[in-house]
Design a protein around this nucleic acid. Structure first.
Length: 887
RNA sequence: GGGAGCAUAGCUCAGUUGGUUUAGAGCAUCUGCCUUACAAGCAGAGGGUCCGCGGUUCGAACCCGUGUGCUCCCACCA
């Protein structure tokens, strides 16, 4: 077969995806006897396509899942997507307007949902396609969507259940209002940004003074506010009772400017004497603090804003104008009337809607809430007791704990259509009951209010999207709708959840709550937080900046394996990573390295020398040493990788494998066993090399599944597929062989370096003379040493010509004899450099050893090690000094 | 205003119970190679006051304190 010069990923990836699918390798059944390894995908929103953050997430999950599958687990990775109520609804509304010229208000709920489901179909499929292209080994028969029929029912069931337990209530509270999406938001959906705002100082006339307007300075008080457009909602002004400046106002009233509404002056400790003018306007409808003060003093609430952020009739002036337009006009009018004392710049934080980016408006509104305190307790314990482990824990345990300890009630109703409609039913008098169906609601009305066949209307609102996704680890196995079914019993709890740290409160904490409440058990044992993917300049990847590359374009350009490699190689758990395409390129080069190693083995296969039956490899042959050494090196690395994977240190595991393959296998091992040009490789050597290669592919497969599967089949005819293959457990490495291997590498490198520094061409044949008192140790490595340094001769403890170059490796002396004229100054320079280093080193060791306290306190093995270091250094110094003396 | 994290080579980062050398890797740089697996490569090399200061210790990149500079989370000061 003709093999291409370089690895071409496209067709190969497609081939294996199809093959794996046909073989149903990633299908998992609860009838299986093996232990389960369950992972549920954080369902991507059906708002668009996958970005680099998803790519990192899915890759991490796939590595863990494939690793488990290849280690004897019944791995089950559930794919799916999230309806993302507000985010998707906004996109659909936007699309309808732009592409079809349709306004949402002209559609019925049913018509709108039809469009929304079409949207979901389209983008859901794009996302699933991307997940597949990336090589994710998910079970496509289990694909779930948070608005699937059973899922919808589960959400309703949980709502009704929590209501009946008294953990859901309906009430008027101050909530975060998104005037663009015209819906309530939870506290978590508000993002705060630092902005430079303005503080306006406005004069309020004291009513008992002679004249409300135009009087003397002392007839006014000045109040600072950021929001002059809300003054019409003022119901009082408030000062600190200990503030002497305002003591004279006790029992007085003031006029709200422009509308000349008379409001009382009240006193409360809440007011900070030193901020602004020390006096505060109270606007209960538009500020949470004011609302609380209003409650305390039983003040009325005047809501001067409409749902869309325009001024309402209650404002009396500028009715229908946008709140920010109105602000400008009011400031202008105040200035004209001489009621604006000054305006100054002011650093503040403003809340923005996570979805629509509109400035969030505090608003009193009747909404549905979940009581969180009770739910939070078991979820807190699950983490503090160590039942659930967060990685990296030191960074997130505290955050998690703090949030749960201070959790507030969760506003779950949204004034939208896309989502699970709240199962509350109202009669004409506004009485309501909560029930899963209208029929059941009627029955309750019948028993509760003795109304037969009540005319009921369902609550218009839908539930927060997170109120459905918190059931994800349970309901993807129908654990809510069909409790105790085989799947949920077998697959729950999951092994590990991999997600971004930004949704720790939105999702992770709430999933744990739901798990503890409905399964009486944690939903997963480990949580792995990935960092945020940023661009090279450290900026967040975002559509608006245009710095987020398209996943399919990247896969097309580099191949899925290279994309996976590139994103994994520099992303330790929890740390942000700066995405740089050069790491993808590194992945592409690595593909090629593997491809070419395979080609070399194929070449050897064709020309290999089949040993006569029973014949053994010659003792002390270079190949024999190479095989023994690499066996040890491979064992050592496999053990390392095993440990790293258990600790979720995936990028380090990948680095270990990368260097094992590139350096130890390709650069050393393959070169050591490479036969002379024109001669064939021995059968036994060839077979060992292939079997090592297979083991390496196995090790790498979870990270780079496509190329490893392809090469696994190309290098040798196989009866099985790598993706489901298990390898024998790893044995311990032989330390003596590892040390011998390192020594051999050091000698080869030193000799090559010396040739290089002395301008001896690498190809030029040299002779080696070695001064050693351990000649025997050179027997197994002699052959390799000759070949790798291009030497034709090696002799021990013989005196070479005076023209040879002397170097020191370890504490042994090497002479290199060549035909090239030798410049002794180069050697001297090198030797002197080494000597200086060693002398400095010796001083530092001596310092330690001559310190009595060190000798008394340090562990015996540490002291022994230092003594050994001292001895080695001294020997080496001696050898170098001898050499220099000769020169 | 509270809390957390980070600071190591030009760049991106490892360095997990304080003692394997006077600190490692990849990329980038430099030198030499068109060697029959791979120029998407091979063989080498150079490059660091481990952010500053102080402390604990026989011994600190690592532990403690402090300063500086970034990043993130939480919080109702008009």
């Amino acid at each position: 077969m003709e093999l291409s010069k370089n690895y071409i990923p496209g067709p190969i990836e497609q081939k294996w995806n199809e093959h794996w699918k046909t073989k149903k390798y990633f299908k998992s059944s609860s009838a299986d006897k093996r232990p389960a390894f369950t992972v549920v995908i954080p369902p991507p929103n059906v708002t668009g396509v996958l970005h680099m953050g998803h790519t990192l997430n899915e890759t991490v999950q796939d590595i863990l899942v494939r690793k488990a599958r290849m280690s004897g687990f019944n791995a089950c990775w559930v794919p799916g997507s999230d309806h993302a109520s507000i985010a998707t609804e906004a996109k659909v509304v936007d699309m309808l307007k732009r592409e079809k010229g349709i306004d949402k208000k002209d559609l019925s709920r049913e018509e709108f949902l039809k469009y929304a489901f079409e949207w979901k179909e389209k983008y859901g499929n794009i996302i699933y396609g991307q997940i597949e292209k990336l090589g994710c080994s998910v079970d496509w028969d289990r694909v779930s969507f948070t608005m699937d029929d059973h899922y919808y029912k589960a959400v309703i069931k949980v709502f009704v259940d929590l209501y009946q337990k008294g953990m859901i209530y309906r009430g008027a509270r101050m909530i975060n209002w998104d005037p663009a999406a015209k819906t309530a938001l939870s506290d978590e959906e508000v993002e705060y940004k630092d902005v430079t705002g303005k503080l306006y100082y406005i004069k309020y006339a004291i009513s008992e003074s002679q004249n409300a307007v135009g009087g003397r300075e002392e007839d006014y008080i000045t109040i600072a506010t950021q929001r002059p457009e809300t003054i019409m909602g003022d119901v009082a002004v408030c000062a600190n009772p200990h503030d002497q400046r305002y003591a004279h106002l006790k029992g007085k009233k003031v006029f709200v400017p422009l509308i000349n509404k008379e409001v009382p002056v009240i006193f409360d400790e809440y007011v900070d004497k030193d901020f602004g003018t020390g006096i505060l306007k109270i606007t209960p409808a538009h500020d949470i603090n004011d609302f609380n003060i209003g409650l305390k003093y039983n003040l009325p609430v005047v809501d001067t804003l409409n749902a869309d952020g325009t001024l309402s009739e209650a404002a009396q002036i500028f009715i229908g104008e946008d709140r920010f337009e109105a602000r400008k006009k009011i400031v202008e009018e105040l200035r004209e009337k001489g009621l604006l004392v000054k305006e100054e710049e002011y650093q503040t934080r403003m809340g923005y809607s996570q979805r629509s980016s509109a400035v969030v408006e505090p608003k009193i509104s009747t909404q549905w809430f979940v009581k969180m305190k009770e739910l939070a307790q078991p979820a807190l314990e699950a983490v503090t007791s160590g039942d659930i482990n967060i990685h990296p824990g030191e960074k997130f345990n505290a955050t998690y704990k703090y949030w749960l300890e201070n959790v507030k009630d969760w506003c779950i109703s949204r004034q939208l259509w896309w989502g699970q409609q709240i199962p509350a039913w109202y009669d004409e008098e506004g009485r309501f009951v909560v029930a899963e169906t209208e029929q059941k609601a009627k029955e309750i009305f019948n028993t509760q209010y003795s109304i037969i066949n009540a005319q009921l209307k369902q609550d218009e609102d839908v539930l927060d999207t997170w109120f459905s996704s918190w059931l994800w680890p349970i309901e993807v196995f129908k654990g809510i709708t069909e409790p105790n079914n085989n799947d949920i019993n077998y697959y729950y709890p999951g092994a590990v959840l991999v997600t971004g740290q930004d949704i720790i409160f939105f999702w992770v904490a709430r999933m744990i709550m739901a798990g503890m409440e409905y399964m009486k058990e944690k939903p997963f044992s480990d949580v792995y937080f990935t960092g945020m993917v940023r661009d090279k300049m450290g900026r967040k990847m975002s559509k608006s900046l245009g710095n987020s590359p398209d996943l399919l374009t990247l896969i097309h350009e580099y191949g899925a394996d290279a994309v996976r490699f590139g994103i994994m190689i520099s992303s330790p758990a929890g740390n942000d990573l700066l995405f740089d395409e050069s790491s993808l390129e590194q992945g592409k080069f690595f593909n090629n390295k593997l491809w070419n190693a395979m080609k070399l083995l194929k070449m050897w296969e064709e020309g290999r020398r089949l040993n006569a039956e029973g014949s053994k490899l010659k003792a002390d042959s270079g190949s024999q040493f190479a095989i023994k050494w690499f066996r040890s090196r491979l064992n050592e690395a496999r053990n390392e990788v095993e440990t790293l994977m258990k600790q979720f240190r995936l990028s380090e595991a990948l680095k270990t494998i990368y260097s094992l393959i590139w350096d130890d296998f390709c650069s050393w091992f393959l070169e050591w066993i490479k036969p002379e040009y024109g001669s064939a490789i021995e059968q036994e050597v060839y077979e060992n090399a292939v079997s090592f290669f297979e083991e390496l592919l196995h090790l790498l497969h979870p990270f780079m599944p496509f190329i490893t599967e392809e090469i696994y089949h190309l290098v040798k005819e196989q009866e099985d597929d790598l993706t489901v293959k298990q390898f024998a457990p790893v044995a311990k490495a032989d330390m003596h062989l590892l040390v011998a291997g390192e020594k051999l590498k050091a000698i080869i490198t030193a000799i090559r370096d010396t040739k290089n520094k002395n301008t001896i061409k690498p190809k030029e044949v040299i002779s080696l003379f070695i001064e050693t008192n351990d000649t025997a140790s050179y027997q197994p490595i002699k052959e390799i040493l000759l070949k790798q340094t291009n030497s034709d001769h090696i002799s021990f403890n013989e005196t070479p010509d005076t023209s040879s170059i002397m170097i020191v490796v370890g504490n042994e002396k090497f002479y290199i004899q060549s035909n090239t004229a030798v410049d002794t100054s180069v050697q001297k320079e090198q030797l002197n450099k080494d000597l200086n280093y060693l002398k400095g080193f010796l001083i530092s060791v001596d310092k330690k050893l001559s310190n009595d306290k060190f000798v008394q306190n340090a562990k015996p093995e540490v002291i022994a090690l230092e003594r050994k270091k001292k001895q080695d250094a001294e020997e080496k110094i001696k050898v170098i000094e001898e050499t220099l003396a000769i020169l």
